[in-house]
Amino acid sequence: MTVSSTSHQQEHGRFMTVMKDILARPSGLIGLTLVLFHILLALLSPSIAPYDFKLQNSSLMLSPPSSEHWLGADHLGRDILSRTLMGGREALLVTGIATPLAVIWGGFIGILFGLVGGRVDEVLMRIVDAFLSLPWILKMLVLIVTFGTGIGVLIPTLTFFYGIPVIRVARAATHDIIARDFVWAAKARGHSRISIIWRELLPNVLDTLMVEGAMRWSWMLLAFSSLSFLGFGVSPPIPDWGLMISDARGFMSFAPWGVIAPVIGLSSLIIGINLSADALAKALGIDRAQKAPM
């Protein structure tokens, strides 16, 4: 047995205990089930959707739920069930890529700020704070208007904007760790900065980052859907909950099913993520209010 395999065993053991702990909590069980359900749906929906999502049938325009079309049809006569089932695919794809990227870059910069400390850190954090105080939708709209829409713009944009709050959290967690003697010890031994970040800080900040990532994910989903709603996200005819809500809201008074179905889709996913994040934080012993390890 090599030295590194022993640590993997420890990590593996920890993963299992944390997983068990999450599943033992009602919030964790419900949350994870919801998230898993949505991920499965995103993967399988093209084959289980009863109708072609872009098939328009003018005779069905805004028709109410029926035995053929369980959730009715939208203003172009497309099957709402099929579109709702598939409406999370784009959102999950984009946020599924952008969330980890945001956590990675924000986490790295945050740890670095925390490590460097002093005046540099203070000044940079002021900039971060100033940036955070601007309404996010404004910042994003400016970027999207400048660079256009589409996945190629959305992913980097969301990654960038959602990494910034992660900087704050990672920096705060780093500050807590950095005062501890084992970091002093590593510095005194003469380890490089990278080694200190990688070996001493990261393993201890990781828990906080994971919880933060889960929370960011739900916020990002909301942002993505809002952008779609405003017409800057997914381009039609690709189904997307945000877009569907936007399209259907004009007919809400007489064809509410067009709004209700995607709202349920979106909110169940977001609730699922939030519940999971909550259970994860509790399992890891992190106080979400403080966002720092206890």
């Binding site: 030295v3 022993t6 640590s7 420890q10 501890r180 003697d181 084992f182 002093w184 010890a185 590593a186 031994r189 380890h191 070996r199 001493e200 393993p203 201890n204």
Partner: peptide
């Protein structure tokens, strides 16, 4: 405080 809580003894000595 002086031992990294996430490191095994092997990792601590390896440093």
């Amino acid at each position: 405080d002086s031992l990294n809580p996430r490191h095994t003894v092997a990792q601590i000595l390896a440093q």
